[in-house]
Nucleic acid binder design. Structure first.
Length: 421
DNA sequence: TCTGGGGTCCTAGGACCC
DNA sequence: TCTGGGGTCCTAGGACCC
């Protein structure tokens, strides 16, 4: 059996954990730039505020709804606390996303997982203030379904177990096809058009049809829904195959110089992530674009991928290439919404094949040492203590974050940094 | 005026190899 | 009339997740 533990309205719950006055009141957490709602309290959902709902569209009509800018340092730290407690109960744990994890319950049959899960839920609420729902079933996909049932049917206990084929069938019939883990909007529309409106009907389709129309991914899900476990647990976080960083500007940007500085900042962030997983990249893709929400003739997007001569994770080299890409693809006269970078074709930094045409291999070694020193200082003294000059110092392109809560859980280190500086 | 950011996997088709 | 067989690698595009 597997359990899926999912934090309810996670970002909202994190904000509430430190600001009790927000409890029981409709509220939302906004995306970067305070653009749209990405987490909603139950009350806000009930009022009709949708996921991704643009803030400016409900700001005036819902003045009583509290809002917070997203504060990922807080949410990440809270998830760390939550998963640590879960591990005490169910050590075979896969952290699937910032607000949910799977646990393998093999070996827990005699201990009655439902009772354990109920106790776990109580401890989480007491120690972190985060309410969770727990679904338990034979496969991961069924555990997802059980979790939905827990949210719908067992509001007070927050735990729902599918232990018999009859219970599974009932839960499948009660789950709309579009709500199944692995069915996106495209397939949902198509299946509903065919009369396959719920998960139970889906499991009755012939396997070869599912394979042909929905690839091996669809077939795997079909088998999981029928009780055959085929999505294994992943206990260790895998190295990323691509690392991207992008942000929207606080307001539309027209100035190339400003965009080059923003780009340098994002390249630095991505390169630091790359180094932290001890890898280098062989390709870099840089893009910029205007908003999708403006008149067709005002829209513009540019981007270009470059294969590197020698793989690297060095800020300086990557910034130089990234900026030259932006300079050549940039077109004057548009109001840009965002610029971004994607580093790909990633491999371990122990497997670097030097280019035959590399004229300064020694230089490369020296720079790598400087970067190492920079990472060390930034780890100790806090992010951005030392950074590349190309990132600029005016910060006029930074995000709008007008409603960010205090750094409740990470503030101490902030103070230490100030003292150290 | 104002609409997020970061990922994964699969498949088909083309280029190329012997 | 009739023109092989077996691969790999890369890329773009589609679908999905939170």
């Amino acid at each position: 059996m597997y359990a899926l533990i999912d934090c309810n309205n996670f970002y909202v719950s994190c904000e509430r954990a430190f600001q009790p006055q927000l409890q029981d009141k409709a509220g939302v957490v906004l995306s970067n730039n305070d653009g749209c709602a990405i987490a909603r309290s139950q009350e806000a959902k009930d009022m009709g505020i949708k996921m991704g709902h643009p803030y400016f569209q409900f700001r005036d009509t819902h003045r009583d709804v509290w809002v917070r800018s997203s504060n990922y340092a807080l949410y990440q730290d809270m998830m760390y606390r939550v998963t640590s407690i879960i591990r005490k109960y169910f050590p075979d744990q896969e952290i699937y996303s910032i607000d949910e994890c799977f646990c393998d319950l093999a070996g827990y049959a005699l201990l009655d997982p439902t009772t354990l899960a109920t106790r776990l839920r109580g401890e989480l609420l007491q120690c972190t203030g985060i309410p969770v729902c727990i679904g338990i079933a034979r496969t991961k996909t069924l555990a997802k379904i059980a979790n939905r049932m827990a949210k719908k049917k067992s509001k007070d206990t927050g735990v729902y177990t599918l232990s018999t084929p009859e219970q599974e069938a009932e839960a499948l019939a009660a789950t709309e096809i579009g709500d199944v883990w692995g069915i996106g909007s495209r397939h949902a529309t198509r299946l509903v058009d065919m009369g396959i409106t719920d998960a139970y009907k889906f499991t009755a389709l012939p396997a070869d049809w599912v394979l042909k129309q929905m690839t091996i991914v669809g077939l795997r899900m079909w088998r999981e829904l029928r009780g055959e476990s085929c999505i294994p647990m992943e206990y260790h976080r895998k190295a990323k195959k691509g690392i991207g960083t992008s942000r929207s500007f606080g307001r539309p940007e027209t100035n190339l110089k400003v965009m080059l500085e923003a780009l340098a900042t994002y390249v630095s962030i991505a390169a630091a992530k790359l180094r932290s997983q001890h890898c280098v990249c062989n390709r870099i893709y840089v893009y910029a674009r205007t908003s999708d929400h403006i008149k067709e003739q005002d829209r513009f997007a540019c981007g270009l991928e470059v294969k590197l001569l020698t793989p690297t994770a060095n800020d300086g080299e990557l910034i130089r290439i990234a900026q030259s890409i932006l300079r050549t693809t940039f077109k004057q006269g548009y109001r840009y919404q965002k610029v971004g970078v994607m580093l790909s074709d990633i491999r371990p930094d122990t497997q670097v094949q030097q280019s035959l045409f590399d004229t300064k291999p020694d230089n490369r070694v020296r720079i790598a040492k400087a970067i190492q020193a920079m990472d060390k200082v930034n780890r100790r003294e806090g992010r951005d203590t030392v950074r590349m000059a190309a990132t600029g110092n005016e910060g006029q392109w930074t995000m709008k974050q007008e409603h960010r809560s205090k750094r409740f859980t990470t503030k101490l280190s902030e103070i230490i940094v100030v003292v150290a500086k």
